[in-house]
Design a protein around this nucleic acid. Structure first.
Length: 98
DNA sequence: ATTATGACCGAAG
DNA sequence: GCTTCGGCCATAA
């Protein structure tokens, strides 16, 4: 798989339970802070989704963002891990991984 | 090489 | 607050 995608997976795998990371952050850690779009693209068509907590990746605004299995499924998983979503948004100050 | 796509971001209306 | 637009990037065809 492409190098960039591999980096993205590696980073997303490191996100702790009950925590989230923005696409922007992941892109930055992957080497290109402007590739946040490519990050979402990679996670969308990724085949290792059962090996990666891709539901812990959210938008910079705090919105959940998208999900291959459905937006509601993503929120559900986050809720089960302790992430409370208010008005469809996440409190990044509290859950965002530094 | 060029075009089209997408789980985005930021600014503007 | 929400919608629209332009810009950005990696991937696939």
């Amino acid at each position: 798989m492409p190098d960039f995608t591999a980096k993205v997976y590696k980073i997303v795998k490191k996100i702790a339970k009950g925590k989230v990371m923005t696409y922007k952050q992941v892109a930055s850690l992957a080497g290109n802070k402007k590739a946040f779009r490519a990050v979402g693209n990679a996670l969308n068509k990724n085949k290792d989704f059962h090996n990666i907590p891709c539901h812990r990746v959210v938008r910079s605004d705090g919105k959940v963002g998208g999900y291959a299995f459905g937006n509601q499924c993503k929120r559900k998983k986050l809720a089960l891990e302790g992430v409370i979503i208010t008005k469809g948004k996440i409190d990044l100050k509290q859950y965002k991984t530094a």
